[in-house]
């Protein structure tokens, strides 16, 4: 079974991020706190070895971890 780089929740956060959702909107959508959303984004950036949300999105799109 192929293991994804991101957890299911981390993926959900980024999939909403590329739909132009704000951190607040993502939190409401997933029924989690804004702090948790920011934590998921930070964790994903660390796993990908990038600085910044935009770089994380580029990497995730290249890897097809998330799609448009």
């Amino acid at each position: 079974m192929n293991k994804s780089i991101l957890t299911k929740r981390e993926k959900q956060v980024f999939e909403l991020l590329i739909l132009n959702k704000t951190t607040k909107e993502i939190a409401l959508n997933l029924n989690i706190s804004e702090k948790t959303v920011r934590n998921h984004i930070s964790n994903a950036m660390q796993k990908l070895g990038v600085k910044g949300r935009a770089s994380a999105v580029v990497e995730l799109l290249r890897l097809n971890e998330i799609s448009l």
């Binding site: 994804s4 994380a56 999105v57 890897l63 097809n64 799609s67």
Partner: peptide
């Protein structure tokens, strides 16, 4: 790179990434 199990032209070809942010992609 992950592949969807069913592929079509949405997969793209000779891809170029020109992203300066993560909005309006």
């Amino acid at each position: 790179i992950n592949l969807p199990s069913t592929l079509d032209r949405n997969f793209g070809i000779n891809k170029e990434y020109n992203l300066t942010g993560y909005k309006n992609i």
